[in-house]
Design a protein around this nucleic acid. Structure first.
Length: 515
RNA sequence: GGCCCCAUCGUCUAAUGGCUAGGACGCGGCCCUUUCAAGGCCGAAAUACGGGUUCGACUCCCGUUGGGGCCA
């Protein structure tokens, strides 16, 4: 007989009580990879039953950033808040079958009970006090306006075994769980609670594998109990190790930037984030570390997921980001960099037309927008050349504002900086004067990196020290001790601007030496 | 407090009972080089501890310790 091929269906189910963060993104990534690798479906479900803490802006943030990361879902987003009747139905079923009951204990009573148990060294769990209240009585009390919650009757004396795809077999004794809450009744309305809503949704959405953070491992026996009580199929589980902060506690807001949007704003590329996140807990068989999303899909397997938690290491992220920056086609890198050029005030950008010619490399940007610098139009090619000088020097795009500012405004010069370590201000002045002469002789048409380099090399041979020759003009045009090479910068700046800047440096040196 | 999970360089990890415990980030040194970056070479750096099982343990078992998670 043909074995029934089960469709692989997984989900990412965030609560919109905060921005999409690193942990959530990684959970989502692993679900996504698992689905794609196994030709399954990936579903997005927003768990927004907690109306107090759920905010629309967080829903937006989650969706926006998942799209940014290229983690695109096949179904959804489903919203739990729109599925309340479904939960009602199953809740009623449990009540009718006497598998759930109303509980009227107040939070104070429960707390006291708990403290007493802990003091006595007993496992803290609900006593089952309200189990005996009849449905009729319970309904009367609710109509009178009493607050109540629904509890699930946990069967005693059983052991729940979980075959976790990552952790292996994990056992829980039902005796230690206690009747847990599955819904609250507020203003005569029923609101399902986490464990219950999850179980119903996973069934309704035919989820085959639940891949989620390890923090949910202790919820799993409760969910299995509910699944059995409702005669649902129990899905497979895979609990991912947590991502930790430097202090080894679960990564959270107090560790600083944890929202994906923070990283987007800092200039991390989506492919770098994906690559980095995949490496937190997963590794490939062959020791490879740099992957595109497509390559991750090909190589992914839950078998290679680590059991132990991973500490988030920003330095490694920087490294991975720099690699992806270097590998990215310049057109796309420029597209990614535009917001950073704008934010730094280097260029401004006005929408010119809503329509633009069909894909024309990165240049379509320039059809759609009018891009200017200090009032003058700036060409696509020019920006691209500027960026290309720094493509292999960038760790993240936000560094652009510091690195390429001199292309957009005259740099601040200091005499000490202009002087090479083996030289003096007098000698620097002399050499720069000579270089000015040499550069002036180069025809506008031949103002290219190669010609400039030849000129300087020849001159350096005469002087006998390359530093003395190459350093001063570079600082004169950039104002920086560290930058891309002078010759490449000068080509982009052009003859006129380069000579102007060398003049500025000369004047400064003269002023210093005379005064 | 109870339950559960986890334990290899500082960090991410490889080695699934058999080489000198391998790689990557970071760190240090050297080379290349006008600076920076990149690149190349070299180096320091780990099996938490204690018992077993075995010819042989990073690997299997037990315990201890430590860390974490969940329960309010």
């Amino acid at each position: 007989m043909e074995k029934e091929v089960k469709e692989i269906r997984v989900r990412f189910a965030p609560s919109p009580t905060g921005n999409l963060h690193l942990g959530g993104a990684r959970t989502c990534l692993f679900n996504f990879l698992f689905a794609r690798k196994n030709k399954g479906k990936f579903i997005l479900r927003i768990e927004d039953t907690d109306q107090e803490r759920s905010k629309p802006e967080f829903i937006e943030d989650i969706i926006e950033n998942l799209k940014w990361l290229n983690l695109i879902w096949d179904e959804g987003p489903y919203f739990q808040s729109q599925r309340l009747e479904i939960y009602q139905y199953y809740l009623q079923k449990l009540i009718q079958e006497k598998k759930a009951y109303y509980c009227f204990c107040t939070p104070e009573e429960l707390r006291a009970e708990r403290e007493y148990q802990i003091q006595k060294g007993e496992p803290p769990k609900y006593s089952g006090k309200c189990r005996t209240i009849s449905i009729e009585e319970a309904k009367k009390r609710i109509i009178k306006g009493e607050k109540a919650i629904l509890r699930f009757k946990v069967p005693l004396g059983k052991i729940i075994k979980i075959k976790d795809l990552i952790k292996g077999e994990v056992k829980f004794k039902t005796d230690l769980i206690g009747d847990f809450s599955i819904a609250v009744i507020e203003n005569k309305k029923i609101r399902p609670l986490y464990n219950f809503a999850v179980v119903v949704d996973d069934q309704e959405m035919k989820i085959s594998h639940i891949i989620r953070g390890e923090d949910h491992l202790s919820n799993t026996p409760k969910q299995i109990l509910l699944q059995k009580a409702l005669k649902f199929k129990v899905p497979e589980f895979a609990h991912l190790p947590l991502i930790l902060g430097p202090d080894k506690s679960k990564l959270s807001k107090r560790h600083g930037a944890v929202a994906i949007r923070n990283y987007k704003e800092e200039g991390y590329l989506p492919e770098a984030m994906i690559n980095f996140l995949a490496l937190l807990g997963w590794s490939s068989r062959d020791n490879r570390e740099i992957f595109t999303l497509k390559e991750l899909i090909e190589n992914f397997s839950l078998e290679n997921v680590q059991k132990s938690p991973a500490i988030f290491n920003p330095q490694k992220l920087d490294y991975i980001n720099s690699i992806h920056i270097r590998r990215m086609p310049l057109d796309r890198l420029l597209e990614e960099s535009m917001p950073f050029f704008i934010k730094a005030g280097f260029i401004s950008c006005e929408i010119e037309s809503e329509t633009f010619p069909p894909a024309y490399g990165g240049q379509e940007l320039f059809f759609k927008y009018k891009i200017t610098t200090t009032g003058q139009p700036i060409s696509y090619e020019r920006l691209k050349r500027i960026l290309s000088l720094y493509q292999e020097r960038l760790k993240k795009l936000s560094e652009l504002s510091e690195l390429v500012d001199f292309f957009f405004k005259k740099p601040k010069l200091e005499v000490e900086k202009l002087v090479w370590k083996t030289s003096t201000p007098q000698e620097t002045l002399k050499i720069l004067e000579e270089e000015k002469k040499l550069f002036s002789q180069i025809e506008e048409k031949k103002w290219k990196e190669k010609a400039l380099k030849e000129t300087l090399l020849k001159y350096a041979e005469k002087i006998g020290d390359r530093g003395k020759v190459f350093w001063p003009p570079r600082v004169a045009v950039t104002g920086k001790e560290a930058s891309a090479p002078f010759t490449e910068i000068a080509e982009i700046l052009g003859k006129k601007e380069t000579l102007e800047r060398i003049n500025r440096a000369l004047n400064l040196l003269k002023k210093q030496l005379n005064g």
